[in-house]
Amino acid sequence: MKPSHPSSSIPHLVDAELARHRAAARVGDVGGAWWALERAHILSQPRLPLHLRVHWSMLIYALRLHDLREVAGQVARLALAPLAAMTGRVPVGNTGRSNVSAFRPMPIPDDLRSVMDGGPR
């Protein structure tokens, strides 16, 4: 696959969202930090190693916030993600947070859909 192929940019976009998460977390913007993690999650879903990396980042952030509900949700999702990938049952668009069902597909934001579908970046 050529580096210019849109799907090859997904790891870079995940990295950018994780950087956005870190920047928001650094200044105490909890909502912005979770928003970036959710976007990274949506992008990462088709690629198990990236998907696990994002859930790990979510777990670490939940621990940092002492959010035990989110910690439990992320531990469960780290266990479920490989099974979902192996069975082809990844809930596309799901934000990956414990406040939504781990099995519920969700709409993909237009800007992310464009990249994931191979459209303009």
Rank of each mutant, 00 (worst) to 15 (best):
R53V: 02
P3E: 06
D67S: 10
V14W: 00
R39T: 06
R20G: 09
A102E: 09
S9N: 14
G88H: 02
R20I: 05
G28Y: 02
K2P: 15
G28N: 01
H5V: 15
P82Y: 03
W34V: 06
G93F: 07
S4M: 15
W56G: 06
V115N: 07
H12W: 09
S98A: 15
A79S: 10
P120F: 02
R89H: 08
R77E: 07
F103Q: 11
T87I: 10
V75G: 09
S44G: 04
L83Y: 05
S4C: 12
A72I: 14
G88M: 08
S4T: 14
L63I: 10
V54N: 00
V30E: 05
V90K: 01
L37D: 02
A25V: 09
G32D: 07
V115A: 15
L13E: 09
W34I: 06
W35F: 14
G31A: 11
I60E: 10
V90C: 04
A102W: 14
H41Q: 08
E38V: 11
H66M: 14
S7F: 15
L83C: 09
P46R: 00
R26M: 13
L80W: 05
Q74I: 03
A102D: 12
Q45Y: 02
G119V: 04
H12E: 08
V92S: 09
M106Y: 08
V115Q: 11
S57F: 07
H12K: 14
S101K: 04
S114W: 06
H55K: 04
Y61V: 04
P11W: 00
P91A: 01
L48E: 04
R97N: 08
L18Q: 01
